[in-house]
């Protein structure tokens, strides 16, 4: 029996094959930390427009090596380039680090659900992040600062392993000098000249100035750090439907067809990576879910 094409589906039928990658040229490479780097991509032709929602990701393909999901970490207002920050943790990201300016990277995306930009309007914003978790939140910070008047207080709480592991130092310095964004940095361990906070990022929650009844918290970091973060936010009186977290799972297709990224009844690639905590609270702490 032949498949019936309804009008809704025939639109989708005309869509370009979502499995195909688009080659984009590496325009610039920024060495961020020892094993962390940013790639700034531009197309070879003039057709440069990459709209995305803060929190979304792209599938990045290294020629002949493989493909991995990487969050978009640039300014969403600058649609002519794509910025990705990643750590060298596996075969593909290792190969990615060896690429040079002028080389090409295959791109598919943007995919997934991003941060709740609309729901956050008129609310205090708590950005709670650790390690490279700052990368998926950076577009959100840019987004908020571009529309600063639409939001209440903005509090950025960022934790790194050591002072040497602090990502996007230049951005952080710029943001720290603003009067309309309150920033607290902390490191898990420090030696030498560090005179700032020492301790886990979650302990910053209790002493940060925001209204727990009228805030949206956006949390991004290692899963275990996010579990502690949620508990701290709850302790502070933030309701579950005001907490958003960004999840990570194995992804092969990025579009809900390969099955790998399932988290309970959800697909991280299309129902996430950003979830409202209230929607996954029953599965968030389940082992080996």
């Amino acid at each position: 029996m032949e498949t019936q094409q309804t009008s809704k589906h025939s639109d989708a039928a005309k869509q370009p094959d979502p499995m195909l990658v688009r080659p984009l040229q590496i325009h610039r490479i920024i060495k961020e930390l020892g094993d962390t780097f940013s790639l700034i991509l531009q197309p070879q032709d003039d057709d440069a427009d990459f709209p995305f929602q803060p929190g979304q990701f792209n599938m990045l393909y290294v020629y002949g090596v493989g493909e991995v999901p990487i969050s978009i970490s640039g300014d969403p207002a600058r649609r002519e380039t794509l910025v990705h920050t990643t750590r060298e943790v596996g075969t593909v990201t290792r190969a990615m680090r060896k690429l040079k300016v002028g080389d090409s990277l295959g791109v598919r995306g943007p995919y997934g659900k991003g941060w709740p930009v609309d729901k956050a309007e008129n609310q205090d914003i708590v950005l709670l992040t650790g390690g490279i978790g700052l990368a998926p939140l950076r577009p959100m910070i840019h987004y908020l600062l571009t529309r600063r008047e639409k939001y209440g207080r903005i509090v950025l709480l960022y934790g790194a392993r050591t002072p040497e592991d602090i990502l996007y130092r230049k951005d952080l310095e710029k943001w720290r000098s603003r009067f309309d964004l309150e920033m607290h940095l902390t490191v898990d361990h420090a030696t030498g000249a560090w005179r700032g906070n020492v301790g886990v990022v979650t302990s910053l929650v209790s002493r940060s100035p925001f209204d727990p009844q009228n805030c949206i918290a956006m949390v991004c970091g290692p899963e275990i750090m996010m579990r502690f973060a949620v508990m701290e936010l709850q302790k502070r009186g933030v309701a579950d439907d005001r907490i958003y977290i960004s999840m990570e799972r194995n992804m092969k297709c990025g579009i809900g067809l390969c099955g790998h990224c399932q988290l309970g009844p959800t697909f991280v690639c299309k129902d996430g990576p950003v979830y409202c905590y209230v929607d996954i609270k029953d599965i968030f702490t389940k082992r080996e879910m």
Partner: peptide
């Protein structure tokens, strides 16, 4: 073949 994204190779064979 009926979601937001379509597996083209499946759709071709199915058609």
């Amino acid at each position: 073949s009926q979601g937001q994204y379509i597996d083209h190779s499946y759709q071709e064979r199915r058609r």
